[in-house]
Structures are given as structure tokens and as C-alpha cells.
Simulated assay, not measured.
Amino acid sequence: MQHFKAGARPSTRPNPDYFTGDVWFDPVMSTPAPARLNALVVRFDPGARTAWHTHPLGQTLYVLSGKGLICRRGEAPQVILPGDTVWFDQGEEHWHGAAPDVGMTHLAMQEADETGSAAVWLEKVTDADYRLDTQDPPERQD
């Protein structure tokens, strides 16, 4: 058994080659083999986002706070809000991050493949691609 007390592990910054803007990682779990789950809380400042990427075994996001955007290659960004769950299929090119004017925090869960890789990073998201939804996308009516 491993027990990680709250606040005992430091927040870290991700590799800036794969992110735009201010982003912080808070570890949740990296399981030892043969398990392969990796989970972390990711905090995005307004306008911050990932680069385009894929996951060899898919990825689940659970939005904890704020307002974010998700985008699948070839489509317009969509708004995500607290309580939303998003599944990206294996190999699906996508990005995610905060809205332009509001930060966003999500729990990211993905499995590593047999090589230990949980993500394949591609090019950074351009401002033009990120701003596809600047027409103030509709909020959900829960």
C-alpha cells in the first residue's frame, strides 16, 4: 500500500514544448507495473493549453473547476465545465486547456503502453486554432 498525504508532493511544471501558457501538474498516481494508470490534476491559467497530442490507450478528463476547451483535430473547440467527463479514444488527435478568460482544472487519467508512453506529442496549437470559438460559445443549460 502507498499513502500519499495531501500536500506532501510538490506541484511541477510540464515540459514547455508541449504546453502554451502557465500550467501546473499535481500528481495523483503513477502505478507500478503491471498496472499502467497515470493520473494527475492539471491546472491551466486562462488561455493556457496543451499541444496537439494523442494517447496510445486513450484518455479520460474530469473537469474539477473553471471553464475549459477541448478540441478534436478537424473540429471546432467545445466548452467543458465542472462535472463534465471527456473520453479521447486511442490515437485521437486533440488538445485541451482553459478558456481565454477563465482558468480550468481537470483530472487527467491515461494508461501507459508497453513502452511506458502515455502520450505522443505533436505540434503546438496555434492561436488561430485556439480562437475558433471566440464568438462566446453557448453555455450548457443544466
Rank of each mutant, 00 (worst) to 15 (best):
R43Y: 11
L57Q: 09
A6Q: 14
E139D: 14
G7R: 02
N15K: 10
G7F: 05
V79I: 14
F4H: 14
Y18N: 14
V86E: 04
E123R: 14
E75H: 10
R13I: 08
P77W: 01
A48G: 07
D26P: 10
G68V: 00
R13K: 09
P27V: 01
W121C: 02
L69W: 11
R36I: 01
H55C: 01
D113R: 05
Q59T: 04
Q78N: 06
M1V: 12
G74P: 03
Q2D: 04
E123Y: 11
P16G: 04
D84A: 03
V63N: 00
A112Y: 07
Q78P: 01
T31W: 09
C71E: 01
P77F: 00
Q59S: 05
D17G: 07
L64I: 15
V102H: 13
T20F: 07
G66S: 06
S30A: 11
E139C: 09
T60C: 08
R49H: 08
D136S: 13
E123N: 15
D101W: 08
G58H: 05
T60E: 11
L57N: 10
R49A: 02
A112S: 13
G103L: 06
Q2F: 07
E75V: 04
G74M: 02
A128C: 00
S11T: 14
Q2P: 07
W87F: 12
R43W: 09
T85Y: 11
S30P: 03
R131P: 01
Q135M: 13
A99R: 10
